[in-house]
Design a protein around this nucleic acid. Structure first.
Length: 578
RNA sequence: CGGGGCGUGGCGCAGCUUGGUAGCGCGCUUGCUUUGGGUGCAAGAAGUCGUGGGUUCAAAUCCCGCCGCCCCGACCA
């Protein structure tokens, strides 16, 4: 490949576009890689298109190596299949919907579980056919409430999604592992710094799930990582070390008169004034929420957390998906008069038929001061497992920097990252919806179990830039750079001819070459553009040419070295292949 | 959807307070100049001032409505 800048469809900008905020957006636009067409919708110019294809190529190679087979579904899909799984309605406003001339409903695919499931159902029917992994690299659409950050979060984006189909859980696990390994290779090759974080798709779903996050301050996902081991988790899925179990058996629960103590703060203050050794972390706060399945009524839910903690509604929402969670309103509480605001305790919840979940920090056997379900009264020594039994545990507390890792006990820190990949064991949700079975060896149908795996291809381009740029411009990792080497001819003699000559030799040697052969453009402009464009290696044919000297530059390190003209091709090859 | 900001040549902006018919930088065209860090000089091309209405002799500028865009939040398989 040989690109000549004298004819390349490229215009670089000296100023940041007014609508860009994050580095990847600014630099992609300034470097002439992309142009905005509408909010969250971008065109890719020649250099950008090359980079995008490079990322897709890496993804494709690794998916094929993992045994995946590439297919391609339409982006434009009929409503009916998404009706079967309920997603036509469940997906809400984020789904791009449209009508054809006959008034038929269509959508622009946000993800293609339905289509893959149907395709497999249509072709395969025997257990001998399985397992199988299919994938596509396709443009996806989501009508985001607020697209932002340029390429990072658009309404149209390129994504690789793959799906595994297995006969049993063991097979699913293997397919999941294959993807995990493939993703590691992909993101390594893309030159990304990334973390694999646990991202359980919820206490409700419960299947294994991990996200690949590229840590950067501009990321939208919050995760925790451990200072002491390699544990990392999405804040939705984080597991915190539970506190030490109290020694010995707690005395029987007792009810205390605690007038005017509707908040944890006032309660602790009162008890301390009576000489009790207690702080907020020894109290059990019970927060009333409500949940709603799609199309059903709200139900009350009480969540118990240590009194010094806040409930993280976002974290809960992620785990309840697609069930909605919200703070209960006074009128919701009114339906359960036994719940006395400010004095709610878990002791009576089971009797009321109100669902009660606790954060794992509320350990089995732990003793608490909590509400007595009477105005102005609290109860002490209320023990989980003795005086109340929750319906389950759910990570509910707002995670704090300094919380302890459940695995090694070290401190956790909170960081931000861009989600570039996600693998998870879907299970039989879609197979059930469409009745995807294989006929087993015993002549009976076996329900197929699926995995779902995504890589944000266009997003990865932006993520790479977020992690790899400086104040001068882009710094591409070799594997996805638009070219291997940028040959720059400066000067008024025969530098440009020599540049073209060397560029031709480099191309013949198998390199992808960008050559700056623009006449009448000053050296400063060429250097500045080269730094903006970010090709990893540059070869300058300039004033030293008469003495047989060229200059080899490394974009990432800024290193420059004078090399003999005669060795140029060999030296560039060595640099590119290092 | 709530809060904030902004719509003026291709891009980035000034002009609006105090109405008089549009300007700067970048880019683009032509000529000369310069050639290792965004050369210099000169001459040019290019704008329904988001949109509709109103006030006025006169509106980019004042008034009202609408539309759009950006940022923060809500939202985000």
């Amino acid at each position: 490949m040989l690109l000549r800048m004298s004819s390349l469809f490229l215009r670089t900008l000296r100023e940041d576009p007014a609508d860009a905020e994050v580095p990847s957006h600014k630099l992609l636009v300034r470097g002439g890689y992309v142009r905005r067409v509408a909010p969250g919708i971008y065109s890719w110019l020649p250099l950008g298109k090359i980079v995008l294809e490079n990322v897709a190529r890496v993804v494709r190679e690794e998916m094929n190596r993992a045994g995946g087979q590439e297919v391609l579904f339409p982006a434009l899909l009929p409503r009916e299949h998404y009706e079967v799984t309920g997603r036509w309605t469940e997906y809400g406003d984020t789904l791009f919907r449209l009508k054809d001339r006959k008034g038929g409903d269509y959508l622009l695919g946000p993800t293609h579980e339905e289509m893959f499931t149907l395709m497999v159902k249509g072709e395969y029917s025997s257990y001998k056919d399985y397992p199988v992994i299919l994938y596509q690299i396709q443009t996806k659409y989501r009508d985001e409430a607020r697209p932002r950050a340029g390429i990072l979060r658009g309404r149209e984006f390129v994504m690789k999604d793959s799906y595994s189909f297995d006969l049993d859980d063991e097979g699913l696990k293997r397919s999941y592992e294959l993807h995990r390994e493939a993703y590691i290779k992909i993101f390594d090759r893309l030159g990304l710094d990334y973390k694999m974080v646990f991202a359980t798709s919820g206490a409700m779903g419960g299947s294994a799930s991990e996200e690949f996050l590229a840590p950067t301050p501009t990321g939208e996902d919050t995760f925790v990582q451990c200072a002491g081991c390699d544990y990392a988790a999405n804040t939705e899925a984080v597991v915190l070390a539970a506190p030490e179990a109290a020694a010995g058996e707690a005395p029987p629960a007792e009810v205390l008169d605690t007038p005017d103590t509707p908040t944890i703060e006032t309660l602790v203050e009162l008890l301390r004034s009576r000489g009790m050794d207690i702080d907020a972390s020894g109290t059990l706060k019970n927060v009333v929420l409500k949940t709603r399945r799609p199309g059903e009524d709200w139900e009350l839910l009480v969540v118990g957390v240590p009194g010094d903690r806040e409930v993280d509604l976002d974290r809960l929402a992620g785990q309840f998906e697609p069930v909605e969670v919200a703070q209960a309103e006074p009128e919701d509480l009114a339906r359960q008069p036994a719940l006395v605001k400010g004095y709610i305790g878990p002791q009576i919840l089971a009797g009321l038929g109100v669902r009660y979940l606790v954060d794992p920090l509320v350990r089995p056997g732990s003793a608490w001061v909590t509400g007595a379900n009477e105005q102005d009264r609290h109860a002490a020594n209320v023990v989980r497992g003795r005086d109340f039994e929750p319906d389950g545990e759910i990570g509910a507390v707002e995670v704090r920097s300094g919380d302890r890792c459940a695995r090694c006990g070290s401190e956790l820190t909170i960081a931000r990252g861009i989600e570039i990949g996600h693998i998870f064991q879907l299970g039989r949700k879609y197979a059930d919806a469409f009745g995807l079975d294989a006929l087993g060896p015993d002549g009976r149908p076996v329900r197929i179990t699926m995995g779902s795996y995504g890589v944000g291809v266009s997003r990865a381009v932006a993520a790479v830039i977020e992690q790899s740029h400086d104040d001068k411009g882009l710094i591409w990792p070799r594997e996805i750079a638009p070219a291997d080497v940028h040959v720059i001819g400066t000067g008024k003699d025969n530098q440009i001819e020599v540049a073209l000559e060397i560029a031709g030799e480099l191309e013949a040697a198998g390199l992808r070459v960008l050559v700056d052969d623009r006449a009448g453009v000053s050296p400063g402009v060429k250097f500045t553009d080269a730094e903006l464009l970010g090709i990893p290696t540059a070869l300058v044919i300039g004033r030293g040419l008469a003495q047989g000297v060229l200059e080899l530059r490394d974009r990432a390190t800024g290193a420059r070295e004078e090399i003999p003209h005669a060795e140029a091709v060999a030296r560039v090859l060595a640099a590119v292949r290092s």
